[in-house]
Simulated scan of single mutants.
Amino acid sequence: MRILVIEDEHKAADYIKLGLTQEAYQVDVAYEGQEGLHMALEYNYDLIIQDIMLPNLNGWEILKKIRTKNQTIPIILLTACDSIEDRVKGLNLGADDYLVKPFAFSELLARVQARLRRKTTSVSNIIKLAHLEVDFNRQIVKSAGKRLELSAKEFSLLSLLLHRRGQVLSRTIIAEQVWDINFDSDTNIIDVAIKRLRAKLEDKEHQLIKTIRGRGYCIENEE
C-alpha cells in the first residue's frame, strides 16, 4: 500500500512517515501544497493524508482538485483547524475522515487501516502485466498462472515498480522506499535485488524490468 502525506511541518511529516513505514506502508511526503497536488494527481496512491494550512496551495484547494480527478481515493485531513465548520467543510469537499492535531499515532494508524480496508473490500487490487499477475491484498504473485515465491523485500520492490510503472526509479528512491536506508553508491544491494527479482519474474519472451543506464530501473507497460 502506498500513502502520500502532504504536511509542511517537517517534524510531523517525518514522524508520520516513520510510523507508517514501520507498519510496512510505502510513504511519500510533500512539504508544500503545490508539490502535494502534483504528486497526488501524477502518481498512484492508495490513500492521502493532508494538512489544510499549507504553503503555496491550501488543503481545501488540493482536496477539491483531487476530487475532480479521483472520486475513490481515501483522503484523511490531519490539521489543527478544529472548528465544527472546518470539519463539515472538509467532509463536504470530499474528505473521508478528519483528525485534529495534536493526535495519537495509534489513532491515525487505526483510521488509515479502516479506510484502506473499506477500499480493498470494494475495489480489486490486482495488477496484470504481460504474463504477470499480482494480488496486493493477498500478496500473491503469479507468472503465467504459476505462483511465485518472493521474499518480503522482493515483493516490496515489485510493488514499488508496478505502482510506479512507466517511471524511472533511481537507486536512491528504491533504497529509501524498500529498505528505508540512504543509498550508498559503494554497495550493490539494489542491483543484486533487481537481478534476483528478474530471475524469478522474467523469461526470454518477457523482459519486464528495464535498466535505464545512469538513472535506475522501471517497469513499462508492454504494447
Rank of each mutant, 00 (worst) to 15 (best):
L20E: 08
F136C: 14
T120W: 06
S143F: 13
E176G: 03
A95Q: 10
L109K: 12
S151A: 03
K146P: 02
I73F: 03
D184Y: 12
N58R: 03
K119N: 11
D180R: 15
Y25N: 07
I173A: 07
K119D: 09
L91Y: 13
A24I: 06
I140T: 15
L158N: 11
A175L: 01
D184S: 14
Q26E: 10
K64E: 12
E85G: 03
A30R: 07
E205Q: 09
A80T: 10
A114V: 12
L109F: 11
L41F: 06
I189P: 02
N221S: 04
E202K: 00
N188W: 10
K195Q: 11
D135N: 15
K146N: 13
S170C: 02
T172H: 10
L129I: 15
C81I: 07
Q207N: 10
K17Q: 11
K17L: 08
N137A: 14
S124F: 08
R198C: 04
V141T: 14
K200Q: 06
D86V: 02
L148R: 09
L63C: 06
E222D: 08
D184C: 09
Y31Q: 09
K101E: 01
G166N: 07
D46P: 02
I209Q: 07
Q177E: 15
L91T: 05
K64I: 05
A13G: 12
N58P: 03
P102E: 01
A40E: 00
L108F: 00
G33L: 04
A13I: 05
A80P: 01
R196G: 01
Y45I: 01
T172V: 13
K64N: 09
T187A: 13
S143Y: 14
R147Y: 03
L37C: 08
Q22I: 06
R215N: 05
W60R: 01
S106L: 12
S143M: 12
V5W: 03
A152F: 05
L116Q: 08
I16D: 02
Y25E: 13
A144F: 15
H163I: 05
L109E: 07
D191T: 14
S159D: 14
K210I: 09
E107C: 11
I209C: 02
L157S: 00
N182H: 09
V29Q: 06
S124P: 08
F105M: 10
N125C: 11
R117G: 09
H206M: 02
L20N: 12
I194K: 05
A95R: 11
K195V: 07
R147P: 07
L148Y: 06
N58H: 05
